[in-house]
Simulated scan of single mutants.
Amino acid sequence: MVEDSIDELLRWIVSVDRRVILMDYLKEHSIAKASDIAHQTNRSTQNISRALKEYEDRGIIECLTPEKTTWKRYVLTAYGKALIEKWKENNSDPF
């Protein structure tokens, strides 16, 4: 896991569209699944899966079903919840 400040993470998120899409999804949903997000946002499942992996590597989300290879479910960590609050404060446009 990479330990970044909230502001550094916000800059990292806005640098790639798939990360912004995932952040906006996580504002409204308590559980994230790649196929659901992809369907709702007209993105490929692979694109969203990559964003989920990036978020997991940064400690923003954690997998509830790590034993599965598909249909994984993710939730925000405490760090992720703090990030979401900062994202909301900045009206999804931190810069």
Rank of each mutant, 00 (worst) to 15 (best):
D4N: 15
I60F: 00
W71A: 09
W87H: 03
A51E: 05
T41W: 04
E3W: 15
V20M: 08
R43C: 03
V2L: 12
R58M: 01
L76D: 00
V75L: 02
E89L: 15
A51N: 04
S5G: 12
I21V: 14
A82I: 05
D17Q: 11
I84G: 03
Y74Q: 09
K53A: 10
V16N: 05
Y55H: 12
P66S: 00
D17G: 08
N91A: 12
N42A: 09
K81A: 12
N42I: 02
D7Y: 10
K72Q: 02
D4W: 14
D24S: 15
S30T: 15
A32L: 08
L52Q: 07
S49M: 04
N42F: 02
L83S: 00
W87G: 01
A38C: 08
R73S: 12
T45E: 11
L76M: 05
S5R: 06
R18Y: 10
R58F: 00
F95Y: 13
K88H: 01
A82K: 10
S35K: 02
L76F: 07
V75E: 14
T69H: 06
K33I: 04
K33G: 01
I6V: 13
I84P: 04
K68P: 08
L83V: 02
L83G: 00
L22E: 02
Y74E: 14
T65R: 07
E89I: 15
L83F: 00
T45N: 08
L26T: 02
R58D: 02
H39R: 14
S92A: 13
C63A: 00
H29G: 10
D57N: 05
I48R: 01
S30G: 14
E54M: 00
P94M: 02
H39S: 11
K53N: 12
T77H: 01
W87K: 05
N90D: 02
R73M: 08
A51L: 12
E89W: 03
G59F: 02
G80F: 05
L83E: 00
